[in-house]
Amino acid sequence: QKPIVRVFLPNKQRTVVPARCGVTVRDSLKKALMMRGLIPECCAVYRIQDGEKKPIGWDTDISWLTGEELHVEVLE
Rank of each mutant, 00 (worst) to 15 (best):
G37L: 03
R6D: 03
V16W: 05
T24G: 04
G51D: 13
M35N: 15
D59M: 07
S63K: 10
Q49V: 12
D50T: 04
L75H: 11
K54F: 12
R47N: 08
E41L: 03
I62H: 01
K12N: 12
I4C: 02
H71V: 10
N11Y: 07
T60C: 05
T66D: 13
W64G: 14
P55D: 15
K30W: 03
V45S: 06
R26E: 12
P40F: 15
T60E: 13
K2W: 01
D50A: 07
R26W: 14
R20M: 12
A19M: 03
T15P: 00
V74F: 10
R36W: 06
E52A: 11
P55E: 13
H71S: 09
S63F: 11
G51K: 09
T60F: 13
D59R: 04
R26C: 08
G51W: 06
K30Q: 05
E69K: 08
G51R: 09
A44S: 10
H71F: 10
I56F: 04
R14S: 09
I4H: 02
V17Q: 04
V25H: 01
V45W: 01
T15I: 11
L70F: 12
L9T: 01
V16F: 10
M35E: 14
V17K: 01
F8L: 12
W64T: 15
E68K: 13
V72N: 00
P55F: 13
R47K: 15
R20H: 10
E69R: 05
P10W: 01
G67M: 06
T15L: 05
N11P: 02
H71D: 05
C21W: 06
I48T: 08
P10Y: 01
M34A: 13
E69Q: 08
I39F: 11
G51E: 10
P3K: 15
L29G: 00
H71L: 09
D59K: 06
L29S: 01
L38C: 06
K12G: 14
S28K: 02
E68T: 09
I4V: 05
L33G: 08
L75Y: 06
Q13R: 03
L65E: 07
N11L: 04
L75D: 15
W58S: 02
V45P: 11
E41D: 10
E52H: 15
G37H: 10
M35P: 10
D50V: 10
L9K: 00
V7P: 00
Q49I: 10
P40N: 10
V25E: 00
P40Y: 14
E52V: 08
T60V: 10
I4D: 05
V5N: 01
M35D: 11
E73F: 06
P55T: 11
L38Q: 09
K54A: 07
P18N: 07
K2S: 06
T60G: 11
L38I: 15
R6K: 07
M35Y: 11
G22M: 04
V45E: 00
K30R: 09
I62F: 04
L70T: 04
G37A: 13
M35I: 12
E73T: 03
P40S: 14
L38H: 08
K31W: 02
V72W: 00
V23T: 11
K53Q: 12
A32I: 08
T24A: 06
H71Y: 12
G37I: 02
I48S: 09
I62V: 11
I48F: 14
K31G: 05
R6A: 05
A32D: 09
I4W: 01
P3Y: 14
L65M: 12
E73H: 08
V25A: 05
T60D: 08
R14C: 10
W64E: 14
R36Q: 08
A19R: 05
V25M: 13
C21M: 15
N11A: 07
C21E: 15
L65W: 11
T66I: 09
V45I: 14
G67N: 13
E73P: 00
R26I: 13
S28Q: 08
M34K: 15
T15D: 02
A32H: 08
V7Q: 00
G22R: 04
T15E: 04
V23I: 12
P55W: 07
M35Q: 13
M34H: 04
C42H: 15
V74N: 12
K12R: 15
I62R: 00
V72G: 00
C43H: 15
Q1C: 14
I62G: 03
E76H: 10
C43N: 02
V17E: 01
L75Q: 13
R20W: 04
E68L: 09
G37F: 04
E41V: 04
K2A: 02
I56V: 14
I39T: 15
E68A: 12
L38E: 08
K30A: 06
L70W: 02
E76N: 04
M35V: 14
T66A: 12
K30C: 04
I48Q: 13
D59Q: 08
T60Y: 10
E41N: 13
A19E: 01
T60N: 09
E76C: 05
E68S: 09
K12W: 06
I39W: 06
E52P: 08
D27K: 08
W64C: 15
R14V: 11
W64M: 11
S28T: 07
T66K: 12
R36M: 05
T66W: 03
Q1V: 13
I56Y: 04
A32W: 03
G67T: 05
W58G: 05
I48A: 11
M34N: 13
P18E: 15
K31P: 05
K53F: 13
C43E: 01
V17T: 03
E76Q: 15
I39P: 13
E73M: 07
I56N: 01
F8M: 14
V17G: 00
R47Q: 14
A19K: 06
G57M: 07
K54N: 14
P3L: 08
A19N: 02
E69P: 08
F8R: 08
T60I: 14
P18I: 06
Q1E: 15
T60W: 02
E68P: 05
T24L: 04
Q49K: 08
I62S: 08
K2P: 03
L38R: 03
G51T: 12
A32V: 10
W64N: 10
M34R: 15
D50G: 07
Q49S: 13
D50H: 14
L9A: 00
L9Y: 02
Q1T: 14
Y46M: 11
E73R: 07
V17L: 06
Q49Y: 13
V72R: 00
D27N: 05
R47C: 06
V45H: 00
C21D: 14
L75E: 14
E52T: 11
L29E: 00
T24W: 01
I48V: 14
S63C: 05
K54Q: 10
D27M: 06
T24N: 12
K31L: 02
V5K: 01
T66H: 09
L75C: 15
I4G: 05
P40G: 02
S63D: 04
A19G: 05
Y46S: 13
A32M: 05
R47A: 10
V16Q: 05
K54I: 08
L9W: 11
E52Q: 13
W58D: 05
I62Y: 01
W64H: 14
L65K: 03
S63M: 04
L75R: 13
T15W: 03
R36K: 09
R36I: 05
V25W: 01
K30H: 10
V5W: 01
C21L: 15
V16S: 06
A44G: 10
Q13E: 11
C42L: 12
D61I: 03
A44F: 06
V16R: 03
E69N: 15
V72Y: 00
I39Y: 11
G67Y: 03
V74M: 07
E73K: 02
M34L: 11
I48E: 12
I62W: 02
T60S: 14
S28W: 00
P18V: 11
K53T: 07
D50Q: 07
K2Y: 14
A19F: 02
R20S: 11
T60Q: 07
D59N: 07
L33P: 03
E69I: 11
R36S: 07
E41W: 03
G57H: 05
R36Y: 09
S63I: 03
R14L: 10
I62L: 09
R14M: 10
F8C: 13
R36G: 11
W58E: 04
R20I: 06
